[in-house]
Amino acid sequence: MSKLEVFQLLLQDNPDLFTTQGLSSLLEDCIRLKYPERHKFTYPSLLNQQVYLSLANLGNGSSEDEEILRRILSDPKGWCMDAPAEVKEGGKFYDNMGKVFGPRFGTDLFLYHTVRDNIQQLQKNLGISGVRVINISVRDRLFSFPTVEDQLITLDEDRATLQQAVPEIIKYFVSLVQMQPAYKLFLVDQKEQKTSVSVTAVENAASSVVIAEIYTESYNWELTGANCWRGKSVERLDPDEIRLTLHLDWDENKFIFFEAQHPDLSRFPWLDTAE
């Protein structure tokens, strides 16, 4: 099946294919192919195996592709065992993963990574942004900010968009913390140890930040044993926790984490019990 035929089918499924959300949804569908009965596909054409394989640049009729397909489909666990040295070396990662998650896992992961790399190259060639704007409402305050699509690449212009949004995101977070009832603010280290801080610590960090992200968590907790609690995620107007993640570099190596906790300790029953 040619690439043109594949994209014609995908465009019939979703005319917005060549957009940030369109490509992100395509990769999300690819991830869900293993359990199709549990997912509503934006691109049902992917359920045709030839469409999916064509996105991986496989199945176009070349002798090399046919050999790779023969190996993958006939021996998912050992498809690269008698391949050339460089192919065998590259296949070790997938084979090792298969030993942990089952014989087909390595093959599925190989195919998905190949599809994702191809889609990311297409995204780059077409200049499609890897950033989307999300809308949130926390403590009855609406806010919109850009965030990275996990499976897409971040273009140079995306980096500018993300960095320019940092001051407003931090300002929004600080306003949420200071609203009455005021939240308790903590700096969280890599060992998840918490140190009480003021909003000044958040504001002082702004100058070195390239990406800022906010998310919230709230739970109903149930005691299941001696000091053992099970939580069920819920939505609350005033969430239990408001978290701010500050990325200090583009390589995802350096972070600063802040956590704001609701002052009502009954939201955190293990703390209440400890006292």
Rank of each mutant, 00 (worst) to 15 (best):
139 R>T: 03
79 W>A: 02
5 E>Y: 08
227 N>V: 07
15 P>H: 04
15 P>C: 03
44 P>H: 05
178 Q>N: 11
43 Y>V: 12
76 P>L: 10
212 A>M: 06
58 L>H: 15
76 P>A: 04
218 S>I: 02
223 L>D: 00
66 E>I: 06
34 K>M: 09
160 A>T: 15
234 V>R: 03
186 F>T: 02
48 N>E: 14
208 S>G: 04
3 K>A: 14
61 G>A: 06
259 E>I: 01
208 S>K: 06
122 L>T: 05
218 S>M: 07
122 L>Y: 05
197 V>P: 00
119 I>F: 04
165 A>T: 10
102 G>T: 12
148 V>A: 01
43 Y>S: 09
38 R>P: 00
216 T>C: 13
35 Y>W: 12
51 V>I: 13
251 D>G: 03
184 K>W: 10
84 P>I: 06
157 E>D: 07
203 E>D: 10
102 G>A: 10
13 D>K: 05
240 D>P: 05
230 R>K: 15
171 K>D: 14
108 D>Y: 15
167 P>R: 01
181 P>A: 10
266 S>V: 01
17 L>A: 06
16 D>L: 13
75 D>T: 13
143 F>W: 01
192 E>H: 13
186 F>C: 02
92 K>D: 05
39 H>F: 12
210 V>F: 04
160 A>E: 15
226 A>F: 13
70 R>W: 09
196 S>R: 06
230 R>V: 09
273 T>R: 10
243 R>K: 06
67 E>K: 14
202 V>H: 00
214 I>D: 02
253 N>E: 09
134 I>H: 04
179 M>T: 04
145 F>R: 07
266 S>A: 11
19 T>Q: 07
46 L>G: 07
98 G>S: 05
116 R>G: 08
215 Y>R: 04
189 D>A: 12
141 R>L: 11
124 K>F: 09
2 S>P: 07
116 R>M: 13
49 Q>H: 15
148 V>C: 03
238 D>Q: 14
261 Q>T: 09
72 I>M: 12
129 S>D: 03
223 L>E: 08
99 K>R: 15
226 A>G: 01
147 T>D: 10
241 E>D: 05
175 S>H: 12
203 E>W: 03
95 D>Y: 14
244 L>N: 09
250 W>T: 02
103 P>T: 07
210 V>I: 14
261 Q>I: 03
117 D>H: 09
74 S>W: 11
225 G>H: 03
190 Q>H: 11
181 P>S: 06
238 D>T: 00
17 L>T: 08
91 G>F: 02
106 G>E: 10
116 R>P: 06
191 K>G: 08
203 E>K: 15
25 S>L: 15
183 Y>A: 11
88 K>W: 10
191 K>Q: 15
156 D>Y: 06
45 S>R: 12
236 R>I: 04
150 D>Q: 11
268 F>Q: 00
171 K>G: 01
222 E>Y: 05
228 C>R: 09
243 R>P: 00
169 I>A: 03
17 L>H: 08
3 K>T: 12
260 A>P: 03
92 K>M: 15
4 L>F: 11
15 P>K: 05
160 A>R: 15
175 S>G: 05
67 E>N: 13
116 R>Q: 15
148 V>N: 03
111 L>S: 07
128 I>F: 04
29 D>T: 12
14 N>K: 04
213 E>K: 14
164 Q>K: 07
131 V>E: 02
228 C>V: 09
190 Q>G: 10
33 L>F: 10
